[in-house]
Structure formats: C-alpha cells, structure tokens
C-alpha cells in the first residue's frame, strides 16, 4: 500500500477531476456539490431532480467498495455537536449565497480561470485559515 498521503491525494484529485470532466462533457453541467444538492433542497432544480439524485447516490455509495484500500476510514470529526451544527449551517448558507463550494468554484471554476471561482476560493480559504487561527490557536476550542 502507498503510504505517502500526497500520492493518494494526487490520484484522488485526478479521479475527482475526471468526475467533473464526465459531468461537463457528457451531461453538459458543472459538477458543484453544493449546487447539485442545494437545487434539490430549495426546489430550484426540480427540473433535473433525477440527475441530481443519481449524482448524490453515486457520491454516497462509491466509497463503500473502497474501504479496504485505505488504511483507516476514521474521519476524525470533532465531538463538539455545537460546532458541527454551526459549521453545517455556515456551509449551507455560505455555499448557496456564493453559488458554489470547493468543487464548483474551486475545481470547476478555477480550471477555466473563472474570476468568480478564483475570488470565491481565495475568500473561503482565507476565512478557513483565519477560523483555524481564532478557534484553535487563540480560543483553543478545536
């Protein structure tokens, strides 16, 4: 088994990019996780409901046969339920206001040199880094 995390990261990245390429070239759509889910949640994407459900089913089910590949499947998620709820709300509101997340703005947007994708990515990375500084190094709660 490959031990180096960055090799797994790079190979996984290639697979993620291939997923985006298939969704774009075959279905003609941008692969953005928050947009695909969000369109179902708020009803704005009901015209393409089954396409969205099929995509999400693939995302959820695909890791199951891959469990043996990875040395551990622990996601190290915090036990702080308040933090989980706050983070989930922030991610839900934020990605829908910004019209995209790491996959839509990050992977799909930046790879076509979209200004909106690049600006969004800069801001969410800065905000994420600052959150780490405040909550980990200053407050010490995560």
């Amino acid at each position: 088994m490959i031990e180096q995390d960055w090799i797994w990261g790079f190979v996984g990245g290639l697979v993620i990019g291939t997923a985006g390429a298939v969704y774009l070239l075959v279905n003609g759509r941008i692969m953005g996780a928050s947009g695909i889910l969000g369109g179902l949640v708020d009803g704005s994407g009901m015209r393409t409901m089954w396409e969205r459900i099929a995509f999400i089913a693939g995302v959820i089910l695909a890791p199951i046969p891959l469990y043996p590949l990875y040395k551990e499947v622990d996601t190290h998620i915090t036990g702080n339920l308040l933090a989980i709820v706050a983070a989930g709300l922030l991610v839900g509101i934020g990605t829908r206001l910004a019209n995209g997340c790491t996959s839509g703005h990050g992977v799909c947007g930046m790879s076509r040199l979209s200004l909106r994708g690049i600006v969004a990515t800069v801001f969410y990375i800065l905000a994420g880094g600052l959150t780490m500084v405040v909550f980990k190094h200053v407050l010490g709660v995560i």
Partner: peptide
C-alpha cells in the same frame, strides 16, 4: 453574495473540516 457567502462557507469549513462534497461522501 459571492464574497459574503464564501467567507461564511470558509468559516464553517475551517470549524469542522467538511465541505459539501466530502460531507456526503
């Protein structure tokens, strides 16, 4: 909306380390 939304998203992303795709996967 792009800037405010991305900042809110980034805060949640940093707080727990999950974004929409991986949270589903």
């Amino acid at each position: 909306n792009l800037v405010v939304g991305s900042v809110l998203f980034g805060m949640g992303w940093g707080l727990v380390g999950l974004c929409p795709g991986p949270s589903l996967a």
